[in-house]
Nucleic acid binder design. Structure first.
Lengths: 205, 205
DNA sequence: CGACAATACGGAACATGGTTCCGTATCACA
DNA sequence: TGTGATACGGAACCATGTTCCGTATTGTCG
């Protein structure tokens, strides 16, 4: 309400309101590291309590830093998603075949999802949206869109599928359970992509 | 250990040991109906307690008839899976293009999964195997295998993808969350199938 | 330096959902 | 009708995510 008087409103996007307590900052890092470790050898379904224990903090602290479990997962893998975005942009600049670029990019993305077991299943809100979390989608869809568009302009693709739909589809394909040797998400994603190349949109689609 | 003495071992596959109590049989039917109703308007994630309540029985009764939650789901949709198997066989007998048959069959399957919201995500064991349940897979894979084989023999398909993998892939594609209008599982399954038709297996695959 | 308020912490407690247990009620059969 | 087998009900248990709140730590100001 009071318009002047101590500048602290309008948090906009400044990283921290002001000197965040050192213990807080330390704990956040500790948590991120602990979570990365736990996720690595127990999968992203590891219980929050366990991560808290690994970090040597209480669950309350986890939730102070990451309001929802999924926020922690996102935070842990954020940089990998960013790397994927970068890769996409680099591939775009590279002059070669847009389709080849798209294929390479999808491969990298699938690899990322498959590597961390079960990463693809991080839920955003409730049990509502299965599949990729909004953060991933928000960042990856634009890149995918451009790759797709480039390939389309080059006449290498005929399907009118959207980037969002493709991302979700791939994310879902990477959603496997167990270490089933009979199912290879990478292979399926290749097949899907082959379909994107050759599929002619039918009437209702 | 004792080899004789009352015949009751070797349960093999006889439907019921002897006259099953009428209340038991009645409750099973009641449960199946209640579950179908609850699943229909709350999705297959509805709590067991709720189904028990709808059926007017205790949870213990639910678990007596269906040892695991997923068994109940399976039981509710078993006949639809069977119908899908039948359809496959009918399509096989029909003389037309094997590929067309496969496409029609996949469509029917996808429709089945999409219609019941979230059906595709019934877990078998723990959180191990996401996607289709073993029962579904066990029954559908053989049919799919034959359809696929027929199409391959007719030279309409080049990919060496297996029926199991295809079923799982399609199941995963149907695994969506929310009623996202931007994602159409049917369309994605068509694209995947188009990929099956055109995709040439590369080196490592 | 010492007090105070803001910030952060820990972990018990709550909510939800699957599953198990066991005392009691009901049924089949003699 | 008596009796053992079968089935039932639902409290209780376990696991998980998440919230709450009393206590501890930290930064700042007098």
């Amino acid at each position: 309400m009071v318009p002047y008087h101590k500048e602290e409103s309008v948090p906009s996007d400044d990283t921290q309101s002001r000197t965040r307590r050192v213990d807080a900052r330390r704990n956040e890092k500790t948590l991120l590291d602990a979570a990365a470790r736990v996720f690595a050898d127990q999968g992203i379904d590891a219980p929050v309590r366990q991560i808290a224990a690994e970090a040597g903090v209480g669950v309350g602290t986890v939730y102070r830093h990451f309001p929802q479990r999924s926020d922690l997962v996102i935070a842990v893998y954020r940089h990998q998603v960013d790397a994927c975005v970068d890769l996409g942009e680099r591939l775009l600049r590279r002059g070669s075949s847009p389709l080849a670029a798209l294929e390479e990019w999808v491969d990298a993305f699938v690899d990322f999802l498959v590597t961390k077991h079960g990463l693809a299943s991080v839920n955003g809100g409730q049990a509502d949206e299965g599949g990729l979390h909004a953060y991933f989608l928000d960042h990856l869809v634009p890149v995918c869109e451009r790759l797709l568009e480039a390939a389309r302009e080059a006449g290498e693709i005929s399907t009118d599928i959207g980037a969002y739909e493709l991302m979700r589809g791939i994310g879902n394909l990477c959603l496997f359970g167990g270490d089933d040797t009979r199912y290879d998400a990478r292979k399926l994603s290749h097949v899907l992509l082959a379909g994107v190349v050759s599929h002619r949109a039918a009437d209702g689609e």
